[in-house]
Amino acid sequence: MIRAQVPVADWVDAAELATDPYPSYQRLRSEAPIAWVPALGRYLVTGYAECHAIECDQKTYTADVGGSGATMKRALGGHPMLRKDDPEHACERSAINPTLRPKAIESVWTEVFTRNATAYLDVLAEQGPDTAELNRDYASPVASQNLIDLLGLPDVDVDSMRRWSHAFIAGAGNLMDDPAIWRRCEDARTEVDALLDELIPFYERNPNESMTSALIHAGLPHEAVAANVKLTITGGMNEPQHMITNMVWALSGHPDQRARVLTDPALWPMVFDETARWLSPIGMYPRQTTREVELGGVTLPAEAAIGVVVGAANRDSGHFDGDPELFDISRPRQPHLAFGSGVHLCAGLWAAKTSVGRIAVPLLYRRFPGLRVDSSRETRWFGWVFRGLTDLPVTWDD
């Protein structure tokens, strides 16, 4: 039996991925949907079918990555549920599921999300249409305060939450082993661990509806609680923040679609879903093979470090109807991988759909119907493991 060798993509440049990964994604999907990338020391998987196959087989493609691929575990100083397979993953995931189910989001958290969005709409208005920056003045603080409330972290301010999340995000994506990034992670871990040393005994005596309390009262050890709180800080602030700015950026560039949704608010869920596909905030996550396996016509060795590039898979023309490089809220509904799949489907999916897609962005346009990107000021993007707008200047008509 002849086994196909994995193509080598020695042309892939990490700096170019961080600046704009989509041209590289197109070339990889076309030339080698599975490729060894020397610059990253891992196999990148960019085809939709191949990424989905990995998600459906946790026995062959483990989330418990080891060696140099374990950047998230190093960043968080622990072993969170996202880097575990079932049954260990299911045990910890089941602890927070009740807090994040649609019924709980509707009955407990919708009012909180609305209050937080309304407060920062006032901050954005105070900045005014000449100086407002959506990430700084609205998206980041709204996402931070929502997460502070969900986790039940009293006396934590939005600046600390943002700093912690950015440090953990940078560490989880630190494939180039930058020592300065690890130092920031260590500082963030020290602060969060000190806070949890006080909160865990408190919530043992005084349970409430927060995620931290739920983790504690599931009987998890202190280390598992701490690792999963830090995991939630990593993704629970950054991705909702980027979804807010991504939705505004997408609609600003497609004024006909913006006009449609402002006329028909029932279209907001489609805007959220299409933005998540087109501009996936989580662009890549790691897996590792447990055995030699054939995938997509090539053979991967055992213990192969894999990057599941969902940011590329979500634009695969072999899966999506129409041109997936285009933003189109009328696109026929098809499954995408922006929130993962299978047992590792994002636990915060319903919280994100509600806090961002039903509340933060619709309220933003209700307050400022003419909101748009201010083309006179610079817009900045960064990242591919986690990708989003770092600066989105906006303006509106007074």
Rank of each mutant, 00 (worst) to 15 (best):
W164A: 03
E92D: 06
E55V: 03
G47F: 09
M284C: 12
K59Q: 09
T212D: 07
S252G: 14
E274T: 10
A304N: 08
L363Y: 13
L134D: 05
D323A: 09
G66D: 06
I54C: 06
H89E: 01
A313P: 05
R184S: 11
H344T: 12
L124P: 08
F327C: 02
D57M: 10
Y22H: 05
I233A: 00
E55K: 02
T390A: 07
V343F: 01
P240W: 09
F320W: 10
L337K: 12
V298S: 10
T99G: 02
D397Q: 10
A15W: 08
V142C: 14
V385K: 03
G348I: 01
T118Y: 02
R291K: 15
Y120W: 13
A250V: 12
P207M: 05
Y203P: 00
H166T: 07
G67D: 07
G235H: 01
A15E: 10
D149E: 14
R101Y: 13
D20T: 09
V298K: 05
V158I: 14
S94H: 11
G171R: 07
Y365I: 10
P7K: 02
N208T: 05
P286Q: 10
W350T: 13
Y61G: 01
S68G: 04
W396C: 05
L389K: 03
T46Y: 09
D86H: 00
I105L: 07
C51P: 08
D177C: 04
A313T: 11
A338G: 14
V309F: 09
W350F: 15
T289R: 02
H254V: 04
G340I: 03
T290E: 08
R291T: 15
R83A: 05
M176G: 11
E223S: 10
Q241F: 02
W11V: 08
G219A: 15
A172E: 00
A188I: 06
Y22M: 07
M81N: 02
L196T: 03
K353D: 15
Y61W: 13
A35R: 11
V112F: 05
G236E: 01
F168V: 06
Y285K: 04
P80Q: 05
G47I: 05
A18W: 06
E133H: 09
P286M: 06
T118C: 10
A338M: 11
P369Q: 10
S376K: 02
T299H: 15
G357E: 12
V373E: 04
E106T: 14
G340V: 08
R358I: 08
A63S: 13
E186W: 04
V192W: 01
G235V: 03
A276E: 02
R183S: 03
M247R: 11
